[in-house]
Design a protein around this nucleic acid. Structure first.
Length: 251
DNA sequence: TGAACGTCGCTTTGAGGTCC
DNA sequence: GGACCTCAAAGCGACGTTCA
């Protein structure tokens, strides 16, 4: 599913109308025919397509972040795949006021970077990681990772965001990231480590055990890398579900 | 042109679920 | 175990479409 298959951002177009358009053969902006809907809606769709095509050429993901309903923002992924930054944080607890961030791992376009507290984890380093990203992807990051980083480092993470927890829930995938990875067949090198262990590992590292930091970093990196595989799985399933019952293929 | 119907958007409310 | 964002559902009004 690509952005150019979507009509749902247009006022007056919901899930039903969009499916009717697809059924009628208008599976892509280029194939839209205003006679398929009423005059007013047709005008709105044509205006939207003209605007959106320009923003797409400019690589302006923010435009689409604003106009897509939150439940449909996963559709941005295919267009901005190479510029999607998957990230995950580890902390010493749940409270941004009392606890601190220990490591942050980023995975973008095949490259993984980890920032470690006391070494290279700074506000500037965080800003730099997000600079090139057109889209960020997390699991429960809307409520945990992003606010935690913003509070701890006084940064503003103002990048279109797909929080995979919600698309997963619409696919009946629940139980936390580790459980969902298991359910969709994503393997881990260290399936025995949990978030609570991450706190323990950090404490051990503070007491001088370098190997604990190595374990923590590899766990954190695996979280970030696996998010990409989860995104591929989830967007694939949502695409299939959107196309269910259609003769036409969305390309 | 107007009535009837269908669809969508907006607002409110409540609950679920996740992070370390 | 605390925090709380997001989503889904429901209800209502507005708008758009269809058809006679």
């Amino acid at each position: 599913m690509r952005i150019e298959n979507s009509f749902i951002p247009v006022r007056g177009v919901g899930e039903r109308t969009e499916r009717n358009l697809w059924r009628a053969g208008a599976t892509h902006w280029d194939e839209f025919d205003a006679s398929l809907v009423g005059a007013k809606t047709g005008d709105r769709i044509e205006t939207f397509i003209a605007d959106a095509a320009a923003h797409l050429d400019d690589g302006n993901s923010r435009f689409f972040d604003d106009c897509f309903p939150s439940g449909e923002r996963w559709r941005l992924y295919e267009n901005f795949r190479d510029e999607t930054c998957f990230f995950d944080i580890e902390t010493t607890g749940l409270s941004p006021e009392r606890d601190s961030v220990t490591t942050v791992s980023f995975y973008q376009d095949g490259e993984t970077t980890t920032l470690v507290s006391g070494e290279d984890l700074t506000a500037d380093a965080l800003r730099e990681q997000f600079t090139d990203a057109k889209l960020i992807a997390t699991f429960n990051g809307a409520r945990f990772d992003v606010p935690f980083l913003e509070t701890s480092f006084d940064v503003s993470i103002d990048v279109p965001h797909v929080d995979l927890m919600y698309p997963c829930r619409t696919l009946d995938l629940t139980g936390g990231l580790k459980q969902i990875e298991k359910d969709v067949g994503i393997d881990r090198d260290r399936p025995d480590i949990s978030g609570r262990d991450a706190v323990r590992l950090w404490r051990e590292y503070e007491r001088g055990d370098q190997s604990s930091l190595d374990t923590l970093v590899s766990y954190n990196r695996e979280d970030a890398v696996n998010l990409e595989r989860l995104m591929e799985t989830v967007t694939g399933r949502l695409h299939d579900r959107a196309c269910e019952g259609l003769d036409a293929e969305l390309v």
